[in-house]
Simulated assay, not measured.
Amino acid sequence: MSGALPLIVTRPEPGNSATMARATALGFDARAMPLFAARALPWTAPTPQDFDAMLLTSAQAVRLAGQQLTRLAPLPAYAVGSATADAAKAAGLTVVRTGNADAQRLLDGMTSGKPARILWLCGRERSEFDPRGSALEPVACYVVDAVEPPPAWAQQVSAPAVLLAHSARAAQRIADLVGPQRAHLTLVAISPAAAAAAGEGWGELAAAAAPTDASMLALAHALCHKGGK
């Protein structure tokens, strides 16, 4: 992408490398700047017979759950995004629905089918959702810790660039690190909620049409070219 703005990828591994590979294949001038690192937490899988379904909002939950996850295989899984669904299938879970919007919309679809008891395999820090009268029990199996920005971070964000925020927490952290002088930067968020968490003052702030890398990169492609003119 000659003349286009650089693309800064901030998500933790292994997602950072996956996004970098996709972006590079598409011709982006992509820069890996992870601001978080994920690690497993000790946890004990509950009895699957106590639940009607399982909600998965991140592929990290599947990747870091460990051997305990096999105990939950009898539960039908509802996954947010194709990456989470693919990770769940690879782990031997039965994915009955993949949400192409946000987690609340997928949860709304679940509760309309009346699964009264839902197990939410998630991270320690998580968003709040309205279970619409169903019982939603979060079980944390991983944590995503903020880490110091890479040494080149300050230089990268001092010039025009497009940044990717793969969560509301990431959007908030990017905003905090960049500070109020951000009119030269463009932020592409994975969802409207993530975009809202980024605050105001950006040169461009946009939310992807779907919570996927493909949707974010399609949006970033247009913005990288627009800003590079």
Results as ranks from 00 to 15, higher is better:
residue 4 A to I: 08
residue 11 R to F: 05
residue 14 P to E: 01
residue 17 S to N: 10
residue 18 A to K: 08
residue 18 A to P: 02
residue 20 M to L: 15
residue 25 A to D: 15
residue 29 D to G: 05
residue 33 M to Q: 14
residue 34 P to M: 10
residue 36 F to R: 11
residue 37 A to V: 14
residue 38 A to Q: 00
residue 43 W to H: 06
residue 46 P to R: 05
residue 53 A to M: 07
residue 53 A to N: 06
residue 71 R to L: 12
residue 72 L to C: 04
residue 77 A to M: 08
residue 78 Y to N: 00
residue 96 V to R: 14
residue 98 T to E: 13
residue 104 Q to A: 00
residue 105 R to V: 14
residue 105 R to H: 14
residue 106 L to K: 00
residue 113 G to T: 12
residue 115 P to D: 07
residue 119 L to C: 10
residue 123 G to L: 05
residue 123 G to I: 04
residue 126 R to K: 06
residue 134 S to F: 01
residue 139 V to C: 13
residue 145 D to T: 02
residue 160 P to N: 05
residue 161 A to M: 04
residue 169 R to V: 01
residue 175 A to R: 01
residue 176 D to R: 04
residue 178 V to W: 01
residue 179 G to S: 07
residue 187 L to I: 10
residue 188 V to I: 13
residue 191 S to F: 10
residue 192 P to H: 05
residue 192 P to C: 04
residue 192 P to T: 03
residue 192 P to N: 11
residue 193 A to V: 09
residue 197 A to T: 01
residue 199 G to I: 01
residue 200 E to T: 09
residue 203 G to P: 07
residue 206 A to Q: 11
residue 210 A to M: 10
residue 211 P to M: 09
residue 212 T to D: 07
residue 212 T to K: 02
residue 212 T to N: 03
residue 213 D to A: 13
residue 215 S to N: 10
residue 216 M to W: 11
residue 219 L to Q: 11
residue 222 A to S: 14
residue 223 L to S: 07
residue 224 C to L: 08
residue 228 G to W: 11
residue 229 K to G: 11
residue 229 K to D: 13
residue 229 K to I: 11
residue 229 K to R: 13
